[in-house]
Design a protein around this nucleic acid. Sequence first.
DNA 1: GCGACAG
DNA 2: ATCTTGTCGC
Length: 277
Amino acid sequence: MEEQSHEQASIETSPSSSSVDHKTWIQTQDFLKKKLIAEDDFTWRLAVTGRSMEKEEEVLKYVGGVDISYSKEDPSMACGVLVVLDLQTLQVVYEDFSIVTLHVPYLPGFLAFREAPVLLELLEKMKTNANPLYPQLLMVDGNGILHPRGKVSFVGFGLACHLGILANLPTVGIGKNLHHVDGLTLSGVMQLLKAKEDYAQDFVTLKGCSGRIWGVAVRSTGGSLKPIFISVGHRIALDTAIRIVKMTCKFRVPEPIRQADIRSRDYLRKHQTRMSK
DNA sequence: GCGACAG
DNA sequence: ATCTTGTCGC
């Protein structure tokens, strides 16, 4: 007789996993990855210590930082922040934020699809207004090429790369945790750091099983046990990235990222208390 | 197959 | 990411 129709009520149940188009994301990353430049590609240079009478327009002065904080009660509510610091004074000279509702979930390896749109918008806004404080370099809370889906011939493609290419800006990826790639582990890194203490070396090159160099683990502050993980985002070489990051570290996390982090939490808190009553 | 997995 | 205050120390 009549067979029961077994049509799965067309709820968003994709064959494999969640409601997200993994395949498209991977294609997008592979496409953007072709544009990645992992060497110095900018017109500015680093100021020579002690000299303050250089042609200012050629010296790196404005370093940006971006971060996003999330609401605990409503995980889809987030606050993205863009700050710009004066490299010499490490003071914030510009800040902007955006409270948004995110519909894209976080999936390891695909952070950019969740966070990049908000951050790009903040950058676009500055550029549209031809703001003279527009950053010459951007530090990103998240990894650059230190990112999964990479073998010997492949580099990774984290949020810092993604943002760098879409904004066409030199970017540096700052990870506060190690995203396991190519056999790299936190315990392994910690052992190497410990071994290097004798040499007054405060960083370890992140060389994977494949021989590829993904970035470095740095103890940015004397008092911090846990390192931060620096990797190339776009249009900058690793050694240059390391130098600049060290210049901005008053604490473990470089100031541009730290300030963006603090302020995004702050804005979110204010926003919520304003909405509640 | 199982576990691991930036923010 | 988020849950969380004070506290011990340079």
